[in-house]
């Protein structure tokens, strides 16, 4: 069965999505991530979607679910590398994914997760403006 690999770096989990994401594969990723967060007591999850050509409502919902599940399991999630065309389309579609933290690239995403783990803040972008 096809699976998206999950990398562990310290207490962080790193996922790079490079294949065309079909629904079951996305759901499997959600399952796997939930298990790994609990098993490894991870403090953060980074999902790199720079390789995704589209994010439709299903994929968007899965990302939101992963972030929500991770939060319940006491881990932060950050989604990085969304392409401009994908972002414009998602907004037009009506999905602004308010519960998801985002960062421009893997480096900034990792920096955010490390700071979040030590209680600092300031790198990722969150929606709750001021």
């Amino acid at each position: 069965m096809e699976r998206i690999p999950i990398l562990r770096i310290g207490t962080l989990l790193l996922v790079t999505i490079q294949v065309d994401l079909y629904d079951d594969l996305a759901l499997r990723l959600q399952d796997d991530l939930s298990n790994r967060i609990a098993e490894l007591e991870a403090t953060g999850v980074l999902i790199d979607i720079s390789g995704l050509e589209i994010v439709d409502s299903f994929i968007g919902r899965t990302l939101a679910n992963i972030a929500a599940i991770a939060r319940v399991l006491d881990a932060e999630t950050v989604v990085v590398g969304m392409q401009p065309a994908v972002a414009i389309t998602l907004v037009e579609l009506g999905m602004s994914l308010p519960g998801i933290r985002t960062a421009l690239n893997v480096d900034l995403g990792m920096e955010y997760l490390r700071q979040a783990a030590t209680g600092e803040n300031g790198v990722g972008t969150d929606h709750y403006a001021e």
């Binding site: 629904d23 050509e53 589209i54 994010v55 439709d56 409502s57 299903f58 392409q83 401009p84 065309a85 994908v86 414009i88 389309t89 037009e92 579609l93």
Partner: peptide, 17 residues
């Protein structure tokens, strides 16, 4: 254009689902 492509493919994905 890339943006048009992305919008149309996304709509196709929604409606096919």
């Amino acid at each position: 254009t890339l943006i048009d492509q992305t919008k149309i493919v996304t709509a196709a994905s929604e409606l096919a689902r």
